[in-house]
Write a protein that binds this DNA or RNA. Structure first.
Lengths: 140, 140
DNA sequence: CAGATTGCTTGCGAAATGCAAGTGAATTGG
DNA sequence: CCAATTCACTTGCATTTCGCAAGCAATCTG
């Protein structure tokens, strides 16, 4: 049986529902790479500075796919590769992710988040979300 | 060594920082009880319908305290009891939590979240946040 | 004082995690 | 064309975390 079979808690609470999918150390970091960093391939996720183990990465991609937050297809230009993309449900996580990041920026004294991002979130959250969604971020 | 010593990943990413504190199945559910349900005691958290194990609950309360998201003091009216309260950093998580809940409501077909809440978040998020913060939620 | 309650700890089997190494298919270089 | 390399995983295994049941001291109630 795979790592990726987890028991849902079925409490009816939407937060518990979300945590059943996202409630671990790695899942949201993979989604960050997809939604904010524009990464699309296994080796790109694996190269992120947090250093996720490849077996865990493989498992998380599988779960995200089963839960409908991402989808994948073989890269037509190199069939060894697989291209992962967020679905609409995955993209829809952006506001939540940005709020968590915002909290992190405000409370981590050693944050290395780009100042442009930090400033922009506080100044105009909605505009920043639109920029990210339409590929206008990062600017310039 | 206690369960509550976890290794920080020190990547500098504010999301990774947040996940080092919040990235598990239970921590945010305890904070939900504190921020949204007005619960304050160990036995109240333990009674939530998700059914957290008492050793895990004990560990999470300890970690949240070490990380400065909650604080506790013995209940003057019954010294067996301990009263837990969110700190400012804990309260500050409310917007992120509400965004996650919003995602859960939109994507969980079987959600049992109160419709008043679901409607209000979509209609006027900021006003809802203010109502929660000032104890005006739930209404009536 | 006897019994119940509260917050929390302990013991233990099961599951998840991190790490290193390996696998097979596809691609590149010579 | 064939050896070497890349890529996305998988496997094995030791360590950590988990859920569950039981136990505990301190406090309160009758």
């Amino acid at each position: 049986m795979s790592d990726s079979d987890r028991r849902g808690h079925c409490s009816g609470c939407p937060l518990a529902y979300a945590l059943d999918i996202l409630g671990d150390r790695w899942t949201l970091l993979v989604l960050r790479d997809l939604l904010l960093m524009g990464k699309r391939r296994f080796s790109e996720f694996a190269a992120s500075s947090e250093g996720i183990a490849t077996n865990v990465l493989s498992d998380r991609l599988k779960r995200l796919q089963e839960r409908g937050l991402i989808e994948s297809e073989p890269d037509p230009e190199d069939r060894r590769r697989v291209v992962y993309r967020p679905t609409e449900a995955g993209d829809d996580l952006l506001p939540a992710m940005v709020e968590i990041i915002r909290w992190g920026i405000r409370h981590d004294d050693d944050t290395r988040a780009p100042k442009v991002f930090a400033d922009r979130v506080e100044e105009d959250r909605e505009a920043l979300l639109d920029d990210i969604r339409s590929g206008r971020w990062p600017p310039g």
